[in-house]
Amino acid sequence: MLDAVLGWLGVVLVSVGVFFLFLGALGIFRLPDLFNRLQAGTKATTLGVVSTSIGVGLLAKGWLPFAAALAIFLLMTNPISSHAVARASYRAGVKPYPGTDPDECAKRHLTIYEESEEK
């Protein structure tokens, strides 16, 4: 009974993960600029990969520790790397999509930059 429940839970998790991975791929093609694409490529794929690996761990007995370790590592590093890429490209002068309004980062970024100039 428990095995069957865990197995079906794994199937549901893998399906959710595959759906979110598909959304991430779609977003990378459809969204207008780099920041929106990064958002699609990070948020959707983080949930997708974590959900898929946990589902596989539930389906195949004995793989759950490995899947959990993989999920924790992805949860930790994926947002950090995406943050680094977005920050670096913003500082390098990549213009956001004009529809991004208001650009909250611009004002804050400007004040921080001026402070560092004064020092």
């Binding site: 930790m76 950090i80 943050h83 680094a84 500082r91 930059y113």
Partner: peptide, 10 residues
């Protein structure tokens, strides 16, 4: 510029 705190800790 100095990397953010998130990068430093992460």
């Amino acid at each position: 510029t100095e990397p953010s705190l998130i990068m430093y800790v992460g």
